[in-house]
Design a protein around this nucleic acid. Structure first.
Lengths: 253, 253
DNA sequence: CGCATAATTGATGGTTATCAAGACCAGTGG
DNA sequence: CCACTGGTCTTGATAACCATCAATTATGCG
C-alpha cells in the first residue's frame, strides 16, 4: 500500500468502491459488500505470470495498484492481449463460467492484488440486487467496449487502432483519477500494444512515430500525452463508454 | 409459431427455457420467471431493420424463431457484424448499460421476437439469485467467445476465421437441437459472414471454395455440412465454450 | 423467361508481417 | 569514466495476404 498514489483516487479509499461510486450513490451495506472483496492482499513484481491459461479458475482479483494484462497464446506462437487491467478493475469476471482459465494473467508493472473466491459473488447476488445490476451493467459495458475493439481491429488500419487503444486507456484512467487531463503513465511495451491490436511490434513503432510526426500524441519515457484528442477521436470514431451507465432501471435495493 | 421446428428443441417448449435448462435443473419459479419474458410476440420478415444504432434502448428481445444479426457501421461505410442471434438467445444484454444502442439489429430470416422491458430484469435479480448467477455466467461465456473471435480476427487468416465461425454457429445450434450432427441450415450471405470476420465478401468466396476443395466442408443451398470437423477445429484452434458452465459456486436459491 | 441479387473469378495495389541489422537506453561492474 | 550487456525500439528490404474494382456467372423468385 505504498504506490497507490499513481493511479487511485485516494490512498485511503478503495479503488473498487470509488469506481462504482462514480456511477451510483452507494449505500453503506453496498460499500461493505465491496470492501469484503478486498480483504486479502498479494504483491507481485513486474512481468510476473500470475495465472496460466488452463489453470483452474478459483479466484477473482481486485486490482489495488499496478497494471496487468490478460493474454493467450495461438498455436503459431503469436499472442493476443485480451485486456489491460487497471486499479479498481475486477479481474476474472469473464472466466466465471469456465472451469479452467481461457487466458493467462501477467503483470506489466509492480502490482498489488486482492484475490477472492468465485463463491463470494454469491453474497452480492443474494444481498444486493441493486449492486448486482450495477456489476452486470459494468460488465455489459465492457462487452460493448470489446465490440468496439473488434471493430477497430477488423476494419481500421494501424494508426487508428493505436488511437483507439490510447483513448480507451486514458478514458478508463480518468474515471478513477479526475486529475488526468491529457497525460498519463503508460508502462506497456510496444509488443504488448501490438498483441492487443493484432499488429506486430514493428508496425506499432512505425505508426507511432507517424502519429507523433502528425502531432497527434507524444511519448517521453512512460508518459504519453494526447496532443490532439479531437483528431484522434475522429481517426478511430471513438465513443467514450465509461462516462455514464444507465441506472434508470435498477431495482430499489 | 409455425416454423420453430427448424431450430428449437420442441414446438411446445420455450427455446429460452430449454437453453437454460441445458445447464441447470430449473425450478418451477425459475421457469415461470423466464416464461414471463416471452409474453409478447412480434413477427418480422427477412432483412428487416428492427433497431438502428442510436435508438434508445428500452427493450430486450428473446428470439423465438429465426436468425438475426447485430451490426454497426464504420465511418468509411464498411460494416461490422457483432453477433449472430439464434432462437433462445436474449438480444440486448450488452446494451443494458447504454441509453442508446451501439448496434443495429437486422433479421437474416423471417423471425419471431419477444420484446420485454429492461426493468423486467429486476424481477430476475430480485427473485432468483441462482438464475441471476446463471444469466451472468452465460453472459460471461459470451464474453469469452467474443475474445475467441478477436483472436481469430486479429491473428488468423481467412480460412481459419471461416472455420471458427462455422464451428461456433454449429456448436450453439447443437445446444438447442441435439439432432444436429454435422449439417445445419446457414442462411447468412457471404457479405454478412465477411463483415463478421473482418473480411470482404470476395475473400469469403475464395476461401470457402478453397476449403471445399480441401474437403473441410460443403454447402448446398442453405445447408452447410462440416465434413472434417477435426481438421477445422485444428485449423482455428477451436474450443467449444457452450458445452458446459461451471455452476459449482451458484447460490442455493 | 427475365430481373434482381448473390457468388465467382481475374487483375492490381496497399497495408502490414517478417526478417535482419543497427541504434538507443538503463543498469552493472571494472 | 567507460566498456559491457540485455532489452527495447527503430529502420530498411522483401513478400504475403487481402481489399478493391470490374466483369461474368449462378441463383432464386415473380
Amino acid at each position: 500500500m505504498d504506490k497507490v498514489k499513481d493511479d487511485s483516487a485516494s490512498p485511503t479509499e478503495s479503488c473498487l468502491v470509488s469506481r462504482f461510486a462514480y456511477y451510483l450513490d452507494l449505500r453503506e451495506a453496498e460499500v461493505s459488500l465491496l470492501r469484503s472483496l478486498e480483504k486479502a492482499e498479494r504483491h507481485y513484481q513486474a512481468d510476473s505470470l500470475i495465472v496460466s491459461a488452463g489453470d483452474p479458475v478459483n479466484n477473482l482479483y481486485v486490482v489495488k495498484s499496478g497494471w496487468l494484462y490478460s493474454h493467450n497464446q495461438l498455436v503459431d506462437g503469436s499472442r493476443l492481449v485480451v485486456k489491460i487491467h487497471h486499479p479498481g478493475d475486477i479481474i476474472g469476471l469473464n472466466e466465471m463460467a469456465l472451469h479452467r482459465s481461457s487466458t493467462s494473467l501477467t503483470t506489466a508493472t509492480e502490482t498489488c492484488l486482492c484475490p477472492f473466491a468465485k463463491a463470494d459473488m454469491d453474497d452480492v447476488f443474494l444481498q444486493s440486487p441493486r449492486l448486482t445490476a450495477l456489476l452486470f451493467s459494468a460488465f455489459a459495458r465492457d462487452h460493448v467496449v470489446l465490440t468496439d475493439t473488434l471493430r477497430a481491429i477488423s476494419r481500421m488500419q494501424s494508426p487508428a487502432r493505436i488511437a483507439f487503444m490510447m483513448l480507451d486507456l486514458i478514458s478508463r484512467l480518468r474515471i478513477n483519477n479526475r486529475e488526468i487531463s491529457d497525460t498519463f503513465k503508460m508502462p506497456l511495451k510496444q509488443a504488448v500494444i501490438g498483441d492487443a491490436l493484432g499488429l506486430s511490434n514493428v508496425s506499432v513503432s512505425r505508426s507511432w512515430s507517424q502519429m507523433e510526426k502528425n502531432g497527434l500524441l507524444e511519448k517521453h519515457g512512460d508518459q504519453v500525452t494526447i496532443l490532439d484528442e479531437a483528431a484522434m477521436r475522429n481517426l478511430c470514431d471513438f465513443e467514450n463508454r465509461y462516462r455514464q451507465i444507465d441506472i434508470s432501471w435498477f431495482p430499489e435495493f
